[in-house]
Design a protein around this nucleic acid. Structure first.
Lengths: 226, 226
DNA sequence: CCAAAAGTGTTGTGACTACACCCATGT
DNA sequence: ACATGGGTGTAGTCACAACACTTTTGG
């Protein structure tokens, strides 16, 4: 390779084993959930862990694209939003290599979009994040990574920085508030939430469009103004 | 190596060229400054860039320790505080390797601690961050990385999350406010700043200890309550 | 006494909370 | 009519900004 003829520094030192891990979060009736993958191989065989895969410099043009590829391979779906959580790395972090690092991404998705086990994945399951973090029975440092991803997501929700893909294109303010409450695991005041949304100007009502839910007054539909 | 006998996945794929970059920030009369290193070699020879170095899995037990080692090698000093900014990576990011990633750390330090050019560093210079970001004449994506580091630091200052090493062990509230104003590049109200400090309870007055500055009333000295 | 920085008190404003209340729909 | 969730109005609280003011030192 031409670049390697010119510079030899890249060959002088052994490089670490680099993986990409995904923290998929979703809101259900049971609150905020995280998607876990059952480990069929050592290390931590039999335990649950984050879906992830090896960075492939022959396939991935960037870390983000690598994360999308891993999502396609493991979960058979792309991710509508992707945010980096952190990079962690050290010796003896992963028995498969003397020195391993992981770049971790998070994505809050809608549960109704199906996620099916892909290559080398036997089973996937949504589990309540609070349970998962409290009873840390996961492999590696994954519980810690999930906690970081949840914190970052909560910070965004607190600041009303809602991302595309978190909800359907058209949604009601009540749905958005319910999502926020589930993510934050705390109730929010309706008046305050609506006024904050209004001044923030991040969602616009869709004139004439309403959503009927039950035997109730129909709700105004909104969409994100990007 | 035993782990490689057991698992071959770590050998199956080529791994990226991994570097560590440092964003050292400091406050002087001229405002918030960033430490830049003059590049004596290609790529970007003659330009300025962030000090950094190659991750050495034979020397570094973790990414953080690697960042400290790079700091010792390039700047002849350890860093009193260290926060990860992000990991960036992709093909064609660095001509020295077909696929390069960097893990970026930031540290806000006191300028009076000396920083001397180390191994393969000819010159170091503090430059005003606003200038550096506006007139992006740096190599790689370093201006963007600096902007991210500054944003994160500002967020911490806004939330009064002051770290050890940002100031001397004993400091006055005026000094802390001046630091905050320099980082945020905006004036702060004295009363508000002091009251927020009081309710936050992150600094305690050192009984009987004051600091004389000029022909003025002496100022109460504080220290961080960790 | 004066200049200058340290430190305090006071008042207005704006964002949030709590709670009461009206609106629109299916049964 | 009424139950239920959508949507609004209002008053109290709290954090902060603005600004005036007092305190303490060296000269």
């Amino acid at each position: 390779m031409k670049s390697l003829e010119k510079y030899d520094v890249a060959r002088k030192h052994p490089m670490p084993f680099v993986r990409l891990e995904l923290v998929l979060l979703s809101v259900t009736d049971g609150g905020l959930q995280v998607l876990l993958s059952h480990r069929e191989e050592d290390p931590f065989k039999g335990k649950w862990g984050l879906p992830g895969g090896v960075l492939r410099i022959d396939l991935d043009a960037s870390l983000e694209e690598g994360a999308q590829r891993v999502s396609m391979e493991r979960l058979n779906r792309p991710l509508p939003n992707l945010n980096q959580v952190a990079a962690v790395g050290g010796a003896n972090r992963d028995p498969r290599a003397p020195w391993a690092m992981s770049v971790v991404y998070r994505s809050l998705v809608q549960t109704d979009i199906e996620t099916s086990p892909g290559k080398r994945v036997q089973a996937l399951a949504w589990r309540n994040v609070i349970d998962v973090i409290r009873t840390d029975d996961l492999g590696f440092d994954h519980a810690n990574l999930i906690a970081k991803a949840v914190d970052a997501t909560r910070q965004e929700v607190r600041e009303l920085r809602f991302q595309a893909g978190w909800l359907p294109k058209e949604f009601t303010l009540s749905e958005l508030q319910a999502l926020s409450e589930a993510v934050l695991a705390t109730p929010l005041d309706k008046v305050t939430f609506r006024r904050r949304m209004e001044v923030a100007g991040i969602a616009a009502p869709l004139e004439g469009k309403t959503k009927m839910i039950g035997a109730h007054r129909p709700a105004q539909l909104y969409s994100l103004t990007t």
